[in-house]
């Protein structure tokens, strides 16, 4: 397994956000984590990236314990993260944002290749190359956040609600892109409000309910499960 999380507990002060969750992501997979607002999805990704310190439990990446590493070391280990709410650098241009995405990399030619790949996937970013990220539309910022996370050439890409607030057409584009990135060899852990589409693109899924995993399994069986359909897929399909 590329990523193995065991009995992860995370707290914010007295609030327990994750109450001992376990999940795995295999090399080359797309795995989705779905759940209601406040279930702990974002906290899970932030714990993987080292932005939240687990209270207990373990996180292993490629066989190595990463739960005590600094966020910057976790990036170097091969994990990219497009966070919830985009978090692009507002007073920097698209170009500078992408350069920062490649902060851990030194070989100029590789960085240039990766930039070309990102601009190929998101032609809109090419048009906006010299624009300050803070002045771009929400959808454009989302593309930049994903593109920026790709720039470190991660083995595992964490995507936190990449389709949030986008027009239906752009949502389709994002899901196509997720497949494309995965087809190029990047493993993906995807959080989505849009559970139906997330389960369509993923091979496996986990359903998080108030800090615990309530259901898990093949994406197709989750999509077919009565309980999941009732709670997350808006009833009958």
């Amino acid at each position: 397994m590329l990523l193995e999380i065991e009995n992860l507990v995370a707290r914010y002060g007295r609030i327990t956000a994750l109450n001992g969750i376990s999940l795995t992501v295999g090399e080359g997979e797309i795995v989705t984590l779905i759940g209601a607002n406040g279930a702990g999805k974002t906290t899970t990704l932030r714990a993987i990236s080292g932005l939240v310190r687990p209270a207990s439990g373990s996180i292993r990446f490629d066989g190595r314990e990463i739960d005590r590493l600094a966020p910057s070391e976790i990036v170097r280990a091969g994990i990219g993260h497009a966070p919830e709410g985009r978090h692009v650098f507002p007073r920097m241009t698209v170009r500078e944002n992408l350069e920062l995405g490649a902060y851990t990399r030194r070989v100029r030619s590789e960085i240039a290749d990766e930039t070309a790949r990102v601009l190929d996937i998101f032609p809109r970013l090419k048009e906006r190359y010299a624009q300050k990220a803070g002045t771009m539309s929400g959808g454009e910022q989302q593309m930049l956040a994903i593109g920026r996370a790709m720039m470190s050439r991660p083995r595992l890409l964490l995507l936190d609600e990449p389709s949030l607030g986008l027009s239906p057409k752009l949502v389709q584009t994002i899901f196509v892109v997720i497949r494309e990135i995965n087809a190029r060899g990047t493993t993906i852990l995807l959080i989505e409000q849009n559970a139906r589409q997330a389960l369509a693109v993923a091979s496996r899924g986990y359903v998080l309910e108030v800090g615990s995993i309530a259901h898990s399994g093949a994406a197709s069986s989750l999509a077919a499960s009565e309980a999941v359909r009732a709670a997350y897929l808006g009833g009958a399909a």
Binding site: L51, A70, V75, P83, H87, L100
Partner: peptide
């Protein structure tokens, strides 16, 4: 947060 996700210490 974003800076840390870029690998910046």
């Amino acid at each position: 947060d974003a800076a840390q996700l870029m690998g910046i210490d």
